[in-house]
């Protein structure tokens, strides 16, 4: 490799976060390579959202470091925000705005000019696939439509790193499949994706590498294939239960 100095889209080192007495994230380290889909998998309360929110510059770490494209989330959050986009877990929209208004609004925030905003908007319009329903207020959208709108919003500005917290949770099979397909497609186009899920089976199909997390600690990192071999398991769910009970 000639690009020894190439900076990783994401580098997390010994990340720890306390909420008072609750140790939500405990000495977590992992990194994500360019163009990769990396998934944090673990049960509810494992510390996935907290990790993602720290990377998204919303929470400050208690200790450890997080660098996005070489920039520290604590020292230069404003620069980090230029390179990321974040889809919160269970997110909603502005009920009185139409889907179109919402995309225009967010495109305006992520862009630096009117033309750029228009480009973002058009790309989001295509990705969400909502067609004429974009003219309706988002208050009238189903959960699946809302998620598509928000995913399209999250990726329209072609961020270097897209952070998606449980992008498919709560969706029916068909909507979940469509969302996974869209994420896969975006990754093919070069976007780096960090996502989280408590559904370990769907992750096998979706991600290049996974990190297994429970009670704030990472128990294993690798491709689904590597992990299954390592733990002699048929699927990631089995990997998880073996990994967590081993330690």
């Amino acid at each position: 490799m000639t690009h020894h100095s190439a900076v990783k889209p994401l580098e997390v080192v010994n990340l720890t976060k306390n909420f008072g007495k609750v140790l939500a994230v405990n000495q977590v380290s992992f990194s994500v390579n360019p163009g990769e889909i990396f998934a944090l998998i673990g049960p509810n309360g494992a510390g996935k959202s907290t990790t993602l929110r720290i990377i998204a510059t919303l929470l400050t770490p208690t200790s450890g470091s997080v660098n996005v494209c070489g920039m520290s989330v604590t020292e230069d959050p404003q620069a980090v925000r230029q390179s990321i986009s974040y889809l919160p877990e269970e997110a909603g929209g502005y009920k009185n705005l139409s889907g179109k208004d919402y995309l225009h609004f967010m495109a305006g925030l992520y862009s630096n000019s009117y033309q750029e905003a228009n480009t973002f908007f058009n790309s989001a319009k295509e990705i969400c696939g909502l067609g004429d329903r974009l003219n309706d207020k988002t208050g009238t959208y189903s959960k699946g439509m809302m998620r598509k709108l928000l995913l399209a919003r999250a990726v329209m500005a072609k961020p270097t790193l897209a952070i998606l917290d449980e992008p498919t949770s709560g969706l029916d099979v068909i909507n979940a499949l469509e969302i996974r397909k869209a994420i896969k497609q975006l990754s093919k186009e070069g976007m780096t994706v960090l996502l989280s899920s408590h559904n370990m089976l769907e992750i096998e199909f979706l991600s290049d590498r996974v990190g297994i997390i429970d009670r704030g600690k990472i128990y294993g990192i690798g491709t689904p294939k590597e992990l299954k071999q390592q733990y002699n398991a048929d699927n990631l769910e089995e990997v998880f239960s073996k990994a967590v009970s081993n330690k």
Binding site: R53, R81, I84, S85, A91, M106, L109, Y110
Partner: peptide, 15 residues
Amino acid sequence: KENKTLETLLSAPVN
């Protein structure tokens, strides 16, 4: 806060 639109806003490149 309830709809998490605030998280979206505050992770966006806006002061």
